[in-house]
Design a protein around this nucleic acid. Structure first.
Lengths: 210, 210
DNA sequence: TAATGTGAAAACCTTCACAGCT
DNA sequence: AGCTGTGAAGGTTTTCACATTA
């Protein structure tokens, strides 16, 4: 007999929530106290109906005739998305890309802290980069549990990426941000996002070509 | 009266095509000559039916009972996506991020060449970085037309990103890869892709939170 | 036999439109 | 009067299932 599956939140909805959070934070910074789905949609190029429907998956946050209280909706959404806590991440791969990642201030500003970095190169291990000691891959398991790390950021060459992802999965890391130009396989219950500018360029050229 | 719109290719399909190209290139590198939708789907975690349906928007590339000739399908897809030509890009913003981008070998390997770089900082303009002279923003228009540049890569701080995008649009650039943490507005006929690791992390935490 | 290409069905997502609240 | 929240309608995308062909 078919199990009536509890209505899950559509994935596309989850992809839009951070956009709402960002727009609401901007509105709050410019001292806007109330916003309608129409005004928010204008800012984000999203229809008002879609915004209302998205929010309705999580509760009722607005006031009819008035709109949404910016600060209240912002704090509710942050709580829904797990953004009112600090997140601790490990960075694997300290080549050029890894260095660019660790020196990017945008992560810390949004509550994502790289608290440990790893590399396979013995020449790097033991040195410090931006004040963070570079560790041996053999220490991954221990450090991840000691430091209560929940996110892995993969910045190793393509050919090692899947192995590193597998290692992270073994260490019970459930969230992975992958910069290598592959789509690594992960088991159910592990969440991965790929940052792949070449793929993005390749979807552009389809529209640009003669 | 409602115009019977010519059945367009769904956007999601276009987003998947580069994945097929990448997988086929790997198969070709490992001397596989023929692949079925099932085998390709296994590699990419995509259902065989979806792959066949996607390909069917563009033609009939397979042989019943056998599958797809890897090299033939690869070359057809590259042609469909505009990937059998070299693409010339301008990079705007030569801070830490811009330097990481210009030194990333993955773009050139896939046929994307950064042939001019720009920055607003007078201290940088006139110097060379990785052998490429850094130019003044005032020269954007002239260089883009002289060098036949079709893609703009935006790596400037958030607060200048929309203005730079607007400038690129004025210069008739139709494809933009944006690294600033905003979603710039562009007119119809201009295509933009955003690279935004913070947004990606924020969609991860939804699944990770207690 | 094995696997494509494709209409039709199912699932999914967006938009409509309006009752109901402020 | 104005705007939310939401069933229902409409549209899009995915999956099914099978006739067809090598």
């Amino acid at each position: 007999m078919p199990q009536p599956i509890e209505n899950a939140i559509p994935d596309v909805v989850i992809l839009r929530l951070p956009l709402y959070v960002r727009a609401l934070a901007q509105l709050h910074d410019s001292d806007t106290e109330v916003v309608s789905s129409h005004a928010l949609g204008e800012k984000l190029q999203i229809t008002p109906a879609q915004i209302r429907k998205d929010l309705s998956y999580f509760g009722r946050f607005g006031k009819q005739g008035r709109g949404y209280n910016v600060l209240y909706l912002l704090s509710e959404l942050k709580s829904i998305m797990g953004l009112n806590q600090e997140w601790r991440a490990a960075l694997i791969g300290m080549g050029r890309l890894g260095r660019a990642i660790i020196s990017y201030p945008g992560f810390v500003r949004e509550g994502f802290h790289i608290v440990a970095v790893f590399d396979a190169d013995p020449a790097l291990v033991g040195t410090e980069i931006d004040g963070v000691p570079v560790r041996n891959m053999a220490q991954l398991d221990r450090i991840i549990s000691e430091q209560r790390i929940h996110i892995g950021i993969v910045a190793v060459p393509e050919e090692h990426a899947q192995a590193v992802v597998d290692q992270l999965v073994k260490c019970e890391v459930k969230g992975i941000l992958n910069y290598a130009p592959i789509s690594p396989q992960v088991p159910d219950g592990v969440w991965i996002r790929n940052i792949d500018p070449v793929l993005s360029l390749q979807t552009l050229t389809f529209h640009l070509k003669g």
